[in-house]
Simulated assay, not measured.
Amino acid sequence: MSSSTIADAILNAAKKYTISAYFVILVGGLIGNAFNIILFSSLKVLRRNQCAFYLMVASIVDFVLLLLVLPLRVTDYVYGYDPTRLSIVWCKIRQAVVATFSLMSFSSICFAAIDQYLSTHYNPWLRQLSTFKLAQRLVISAIVILSLHSIPFVIFFEIQSTTGCSIYNVGFSRYYSFVHFCVLSGILPITLSASCAALAYLNVRRIVRHQIPIVRRRLDRQLTAMILTKVAFLVVTTSPFVTLRIYQINRAAIDPNDSVRIAVEQLLLTITSSLFYINSA
């Protein structure tokens, strides 16, 4: 069997996997996020809780993110139609919005983990830092900062006939690869959220010693369990994608004639990308 035949088989497998996986993630993610939004906004006990507020913001952002990204990925693979290759306006706006919403999702999870650590801490001064007003201000500030952060995406994303909608500025391409993907969308949220969630778990284990009403204790335990689950999911689903990106950045250039290796990397990118979007589901 020739290398080109093997490469075609791998790419075909990647295509079938993408269509199936993204469809399942899209449907499941929209239903799950819609359920979370209804849950966090309707239950009275959660309506003014800052941790629940962060999780609701994350669900709203993830809902929109899935709608923006996955349908176009599926139509591109099935029909070969990608609007970002045809419209420069859509190319720029979509990339800017996706960058903003993806980082907003990570920010919300980090805020929730930090807040849960503060709200369950034995130190009264630290517990007082966890307020609903602060949560609202942090979310608004994050939206403003991330919107400003997305401006270079509007400037530097362009369309070329060979590779479509992409970055062709060397400097911003390095920032996009190293900082945006590896740090802001990977190492930083994983480290920060995992650390705070673990500390919140330790706080909850000894919360019984505090003079706190039993209803509040149960709520703190439930929210901490939700945060731990969400953070664990984030670590598991995001780490492979970030690891692959770091590898691709540091490896030597692939020989254009090595079709099998190119196909294998495409398959790995497809799988890790789907895992990345499972985090939003």
Score class of each variant (00 low, 15 high):
Ser3His: 13
Ser4Thr: 13
Asp8Lys: 15
Asn12Thr: 15
Lys15Gln: 09
Lys15Ala: 07
Ile19Asn: 03
Ala21Ile: 00
Leu26Gln: 02
Gly28Arg: 09
Leu30Gly: 07
Arg47Met: 01
Arg47His: 05
Arg48Ile: 04
Asn49Thr: 07
Asn49Trp: 00
Ala52Ser: 12
Leu55Pro: 01
Ser59Met: 02
Val61Gln: 02
Val61Ala: 05
Val64Trp: 02
Leu65Pro: 00
Leu67Phe: 08
Leu68Met: 11
Val74Tyr: 01
Tyr77Ser: 14
Gly80Ser: 12
Asp82Trp: 04
Val89Asp: 13
Leu103Val: 11
Ser105Asn: 04
Ser107Gln: 13
Ile114Thr: 07
Leu118Met: 10
Asn123Gln: 07
Leu126Met: 13
Leu129Ser: 11
Ile140Glu: 05
Ile140Val: 13
Leu146Asp: 03
Ser147Cys: 15
Ile155Tyr: 11
Phe156Pro: 09
Gly171Pro: 04
Tyr175Asp: 04
Tyr175Phe: 15
Leu184Val: 12
Gly186Asn: 05
Ala197Met: 02
Leu199Met: 12
Ala200Lys: 02
Tyr201Ile: 11
Leu202Tyr: 11
Leu202His: 12
Ile214Met: 13
Arg218His: 10
Leu219Phe: 05
Arg221Glu: 08
Gln222Val: 09
Ala225Leu: 15
Met226Tyr: 05
Met226Lys: 12
Leu228Ala: 06
Val231Arg: 01
Leu234Ala: 09
Leu234Cys: 09
Phe241Ile: 02
Leu244Asn: 06
Ala252Gly: 15
Asn257Phe: 06
Arg261His: 14
Arg261Val: 14
Val264Ala: 14
Glu265Gln: 13
Gln266Gly: 14
Leu268Asn: 07
Ile271Phe: 04
Thr272Cys: 13
Ser274Ala: 14
Leu275Tyr: 03
Phe276Gln: 03
Tyr277Lys: 03
Ser280Gly: 11
